[in-house]
């Protein structure tokens, strides 16, 4: 068992090695990304503030991520509730199609959407990226919301109806508050996925790039790398914070319905 623990620690080092480098070189006073380090600087972070194209990309990405998260979560609520509460013929096939993007190579989703949009003569833009991102985020939302809806006793809603509430008001008074932590964590996860997603954005974006597409463009220029490192540090930090919040809400949901904690996402 000791060797297994050692292996686990080495594995964690392997997992964290790349992102551990981010802050190291983000604060390194040198344009070449190599050891030994040259000294401490905040210059790369300051430079981030002076690039209008970057700011535009960030804003664009935020708008896309918020829209995608909202739409994906709404669709996710519908699918998760239908899947956990009702039995209907063809359920497996229908939910299978909705979950398909989880295992489909992203490039396939991207090119197939691109072909259809171009054939229909529709202009590419942020909204086409949203269309694609919703497709990618919905399965994740469903996976999170499924566990929220599943842990819900069916008789809770029946009890509310029995006590005089209508179907809708019992959903609003009982189900919604109980799955709210799941909804919030679904919003955060979908937001994070959309913010990071590159391939679909790369194919479907119009003239305004998203943040990952902007970064992709900068990777070709070696002198821009330290700035990208600084940007990456901020992004990782933001992701971790969002994720921690999502995890907090998920756990609160678990505690609220009073069941045992079965572990993390997915």
């Amino acid at each position: 068992m000791k060797s297994l623990r050692l292996y686990a620690i080495l594995y964690l080092i392997f997992l964290y090695a790349p992102i551990a480098l981010l802050p190291i070189f983000a604060f390194n006073d040198g344009t070449v990304i190599a050891f030994p380090l040259k000294g401490f600087t905040l210059e790369w972070f300051k430079e981030l503030l002076t690039i209008p194209a970057l700011h535009a990309a960030v804003l664009n990405s935020l708008i896309i991520a918020v829209s995608s998260a909202l739409i994906a979560t709404c669709l996710g609520i519908c699918a998760a509730r239908a899947g956990t509460r009702f039995a209907f013929p063809g359920k497996k096939g229908i939910l299978g199609l909705i979950m398909l993007p989880l295992v489909l190579p992203e490039i396939i989703v991207a090119v197939s959407l691109l072909v259809v949009l171009l054939q229909l003569g529709l202009p590419l833009g942020s909204w086409t990226v949203v269309l694609g991102h919703v497709l990618m985020c919905t399965p994740f939302s469903i996976a999170i919301l499924n566990s929220a809806f599943q842990s819900l006793d069916v008789s809770l809603e029946e009890a509310a109806i029995d006590l005089g509430e209508t179907r809708w008001s019992s959903f609003r008074l009982i189900t919604l508050p109980l799955v709210m932590p799941g909804i919030i964590s679904s919003l955060l996860i979908a937001f994070t996925i959309s913010l990071d997603e590159f391939i679909i954005a790369f194919f479907l974006t119009g003239t305004n790039p998203t943040l990952p597409v902007y970064i992709w463009g900068q990777l070709r220029f070696p002198q821009k790398i330290p700035v990208i490192m600084a940007l990456g540090t901020i992004l990782v930090l933001a992701s971790v914070i969002l994720l921690a919040i999502a995890e907090y809400f998920r756990r609160r949901g678990v505690a609220r319905t009073g069941q045992a904690d079965a572990g993390g996402f997915l």
């Binding site: 006793d153 008789s155 809770l156 029946e158 009890a159 509310a160 009982i174 508050p177 319905t257 009073g258």
Partner: peptide, 11 residues
């Protein structure tokens, strides 16, 4: 009705 699981609203 008193439900088998009691259906006490946990929140």
């Amino acid at each position: 009705m008193v439900f088998q699981s009691y259906a006490i609203f946990p929140h």
